[in-house]
Simulated scan of single mutants.
Amino acid sequence: MNERDFLAERFEAHRGHLSAVAYRMLGSLSEADDALQETWLKLSRSDPNAVDNLAGWLTTVVGRVCLDMLRSRRSRGEESLDARVHVPDPIVTAMSGGDPEQEVMLADSVGLALLVVLETLAPAERLAFVLHDLFAVPYDEIAPIVDRTPAAARQLASRARRRVQGAAPAPDGDLAVQREVVDAFLAAARGGDFDALVAVLDPDVVARADGGALRPGGVVRGAAEVAGNALAFARLADVARPALINGTAGVVSIVAGQPMSVLAFTIARRRIVTIDILADPERLRRLDLTVLAS
């Protein structure tokens, strides 16, 4: 085995972890792949003998690459969240379990509701929060990535943490309970039962829909309003297939073999507190849904 092959083998050993970091930083599966490719190029051009802790070095590099990508997005105006709702790429797996690499990416589950909140953070805040709170990277290692002192990096993460805690509710961890609540929601929608829908929704439930650039979605708040919208789209409940969306109970609506929507639910205290809906045809076509094939 030559040196490059040995280096590639060591990189592959860390791929799952690096994918998880990049996905949480970017909320995009394709961009996460691009970030990993750039990280590999940087490694292949470096002197591996000068790296004492390869895992830490790679985490720092992929973090810096993702930070640059987030800043580039902002400079191009791609993060104008006031214009339309953006739901990050979902990871769809079968209820019985998924691909081992996807399971690594979903360790310490990061639901779409959390990713939506992360999208609202400034790039440096997002990096500090993701690396420290989700991957336990020390502030003195985060500081040089964001060109700040460790104390300033700590402040960035603290600000981000307050935003996340205020906007992304902690979900129930029991998958059986999640499935039961989602099934009750679907049954009520299929049956046109408004009262039953309201009963499974938190009074302050928030539903966010991303239909893409050509048919922007929006945000609906409150149990009555969300229930009314669910009844309006009850036909999609008839073709909904159970799935895990970022590790939690959700559904994918499929018509004639084509995905029409992906719904991710956040459930707390046996009620639905957020629904994140991806209905962008272009992005839905790019999803790998072979795990749901019957």
Rank of each mutant, 00 (worst) to 15 (best):
N2G: 15
F11V: 08
E12Y: 13
G16P: 03
S19A: 14
V21F: 08
Y23H: 10
R24E: 01
R24H: 00
A35D: 07
K42S: 14
K42M: 15
S44V: 08
R45W: 13
P48I: 09
A55E: 10
W57R: 01
G63M: 01
G63E: 07
V65P: 05
R71F: 11
S72W: 12
R73H: 12
E79R: 09
L81R: 12
D82V: 12
A83H: 06
D89R: 05
I91G: 00
E101W: 15
Q102A: 15
L106A: 00
S109T: 15
L115K: 07
L118F: 13
E125K: 03
F129Q: 02
E141G: 03
I145R: 04
D147H: 08
R148P: 03
A157G: 10
R161G: 10
A170V: 10
P171R: 12
L175P: 03
V177R: 06
D183F: 09
A184H: 03
A187M: 13
A187L: 13
A188F: 09
G192K: 14
D204F: 07
V206Q: 04
R208T: 08
D210W: 08
A213Y: 10
R215Y: 07
G217F: 06
G217Y: 03
V219A: 04
E225A: 15
A227F: 05
G228M: 06
N229E: 11
L236W: 01
A240N: 00
R241Q: 11
L244N: 10
G247C: 01
T248M: 09
F265H: 06
I267T: 12
V273L: 00
I277T: 15
I277K: 06
D280N: 06
P281W: 14
R285T: 07
T290N: 02
V291Q: 06
V291P: 05
S294T: 06
